[in-house]
């Protein structure tokens, strides 16, 4: 069981990662702030407590892997990878600049520690299934983590993947839906409703849990239970807030990809400190 002390440390780490991410996007002046902020606690919990990764050997065969199918959340992951020394922290200020190793959408060939190139929505679930099948074939006992967006869940390929992962009994696949209730054009329920999201994943044969995606304790418990599941792939539906923790972006319907000044970013950061 996770201790109070550990929870405190993880929350502090999440705050640091949030700060790095706001700083990086703010330095550029524009970016996918909303869907990066909603993922911070999930990513922090994965990389600082659950995932086996080695910054010195990012391609270690038996590492745990992460596919961020909503590839535009790359900047949140880059902050973690920089913090864990997969690459120098000063790379964060090259985000999206010509020639950078940190593009807007995750690229496995450019960024050390990124396991799959994503960005065309819906495709990450299939790639993650392929990774999980390869691990099973090679008798590698590690996990493949997958993060799907709620807007992304409009894509048909998500449900093709949902069917297949269940058919192949991929208990080594642990997915999250970042359910921040907003997509680019508005609220999910106004644009293309994905409810009943719990029932959908249950009916596809997944082990489904529902958590507050910003609550470290709930996230940890859900991941622990998912790791112990013997037959089914896991879906952790995380209720999150788009833009969480970045005061000017939080809950703002225009936060999917927004412009803001570096001064504004610094103001948001000072409010987190």
């Amino acid at each position: 069981m996770i201790t109070e002390q550990e929870l405190k440390q993880l929350s502090a780490k999440a705050r640091d990662i949030r700060i790095l991410t706001i700083d990086a996007i703010g330095f550029l002046g524009v970016g996918h702030i909303g869907g990066a902020m909603s993922l911070i606690e999930i990513l922090t919990m994965l990389y600082y407590r659950h995932m086996k990764v080695d910054p010195k050997n990012p391609k270690m065969r038996d590492r745990d892997m992460l596919v961020i199918s909503k590839g535009h959340a790359g900047p949140a992951l880059y902050s973690i990878l920089a913090d864990k020394d997969f690459f120098p922290k000063d790379w964060l200020h090259t985000l999206n600049q010509g020639g950078t190793r940190l593009p807007s959408h995750c690229d496995k060939n450019l960024t050390p520690g990124v396991d799959m190139s994503t960005g065309s929505l819906g495709q990450g679930i299939s790639s993650a299934i392929g990774l999980a099948l390869a691990n099973r074939l090679d008798k590698i006992n590690s996990k493949v983590y997958l993060i799907i967006g709620d807007g992304e869940s409009n894509e048909g390929q998500i449900w093709e993947g949902a069917m297949a992962a269940s058919q192949f009994k991929l208990n080594n696949l642990i997915a999250f839906t970042d359910y921040n209730k907003m997509q680019l054009d508005g609220y999910i329920h106004d644009v293309m409703n994905i409810e009943d999201i719990n029932a959908k994943w249950v009916s596809f044969g997944w082990f489904v849990q529902r958590v507050n995606g910003h609550d470290m304790f709930e996230l940890d418990m859900a991941i622990e239970r998912a790791k112990r599941e013997q037959y089914r792939p896991s879906m952790i539906i995380a209720d999150t807030i788009k833009g969480k923790g970045c005061f000017f972006a939080e809950r703002d319907l225009s936060n999917h990809n927004m412009s803001f000044t570096y001064e504004k970013a610094q103001e948001a950061i000072s409010r987190l400190k």
Binding site: R61, K108, D115, M116, Q123, I125, S126, S127, A128, I129, G130, L131, A132, L133, A134, N135, L137, D138, Q157, G161, A164
Partner: peptide, 11 residues
């Protein structure tokens, strides 16, 4: 997509 994932681990 699954084929791509498999090939990422050497298949």
């Amino acid at each position: 997509g699954i084929a791509a994932g498999l090939s990422a681990l050497g298949k």
